[in-house]
Computed example of a mutant assay.
Amino acid sequence: MKLKTLSYLFIPLLLLLASCDLEKDIEVNLPEYEPQLVVECYLQPGKPFRLTLMESSGYFETPQPALVSDADVYITHNGRRIKLSYKPMLSKTSNLFHTHSSTEKMQGKPGDIFGLEITDKKGRKVTGFTTILPAVPIDTIEWKFNEKNKAYLLTTFQDNAATKDFYRYVTHRDSLHTDPERAFVTSDNLTNGKRTSFGSAYDYERGDTLLITLYHIEKQYYDFLSSTADAKNANGNPFAQPSSIKSSVQGGIGIFTNLAYDRRKVIIE
């Protein structure tokens, strides 16, 4: 009887709340967005200097690439300033789009420091530095089949106990121009100085051709990749914490780093 009496008391209250308009429009005055220079540049020994330079846009603006054609772009090394010319192109080898490039090829050894200098007609300036890392060789690549004739992959390498290291591990099927089947970044926090293995699920069949790449990356690139992944996950998710991009450049947004890697091609048999 008590439960029935309480329900009668709450019914009028619920009807009252239902009749109320609980929606209210609120205007939020957002500050005017100031576009920034966005840079993406990866140095590789023996490869031409190439860079992508664009301008950022506001969150509510129509997404479209805003190229910056009036900027002066230089790579610095050992007192030299190497000018990159504005020549938008799609690389046939990497399938990446570049806005600035040089015919000169990057020559550097582990420990060398390269700098980046960008200025444009609006007075904006972007700078950055990267230290060339040695490649970490892949020791072994193994696979094993289960009872369903599906194979898992195991890639093993030796971590250097004398240094703090960061890695990016990527697996492609058939071609580097396809989206990677697996890609992640990690550190040697738990594996410093140890033989380390990266595995997979039972995803492969006999005859599959795989390209396995182990990148030895700078901490600034590790932070950049981790933050961009967090930002993508948070975008459009009302329950996620906002995440900002951890850039390696000053005066803009983006990454300036070098790619040191070992790559193997295997056919599952």
Rank of each mutant, 00 (worst) to 15 (best):
K2H: 10
L3V: 14
K4D: 14
T5S: 15
Y8C: 15
F10W: 15
F10Q: 14
F10K: 14
F10E: 13
I11D: 11
I11G: 12
S19F: 02
C20W: 06
C20P: 04
L22R: 10
E23C: 15
E23M: 14
K24I: 08
E27W: 15
V28S: 11
E32H: 10
P35W: 06
V39T: 06
V39Q: 04
E40M: 14
Q44G: 03
G46F: 12
G46Y: 11
K47L: 06
P48S: 02
P48V: 00
R50S: 03
R50A: 08
L51Y: 03
L53K: 05
M54D: 10
E55Q: 15
S56E: 14
Y59Q: 14
T62E: 08
T62I: 08
T62R: 11
P65E: 03
L67G: 10
V68R: 05
S69E: 01
H77L: 00
N78I: 00
N78S: 04
R80L: 10
I82T: 04
L84I: 02
L84N: 02
S85I: 07
S85T: 05
Y86M: 01
P88C: 05
P88M: 02
N95G: 11
T99N: 03
H100W: 04
E104A: 14
Q107R: 08
Q107Y: 02
G108C: 01
P110F: 00
G115Y: 01
T119R: 14
T119C: 13
T119S: 15
K121A: 13
R124H: 15
V126K: 05
V126P: 07
A135I: 08
A135R: 13
D139P: 03
D139S: 13
E142H: 11
K144N: 13
K144V: 06
F145C: 09
K148I: 06
N149Y: 13
N149P: 09
A151L: 12
L153C: 04
L154Y: 05
L154N: 06
K164P: 01
Y167N: 01
R168G: 02
Y169P: 13
T171K: 06
H172N: 10
S175D: 03
E181I: 10
F184E: 07
F184G: 08
V185W: 05
S187I: 05
S187H: 14
D188A: 12
L190K: 07
S200C: 09
A201N: 15
E205I: 08
E205L: 13
R206F: 05
T209F: 12
T209H: 11
T213D: 05
T213I: 12
E218H: 12
Y221W: 06
Y222K: 05
F224K: 02
L225P: 08
S226V: 04
N233P: 04
N237H: 08
N237F: 07
P242H: 03
P242L: 04
S243Q: 07
S244I: 01
K246A: 06
S247R: 07
S247P: 04
G251E: 03
N258V: 08
Y261R: 10
V266L: 00
V266Y: 01
I267N: 13
I267D: 12
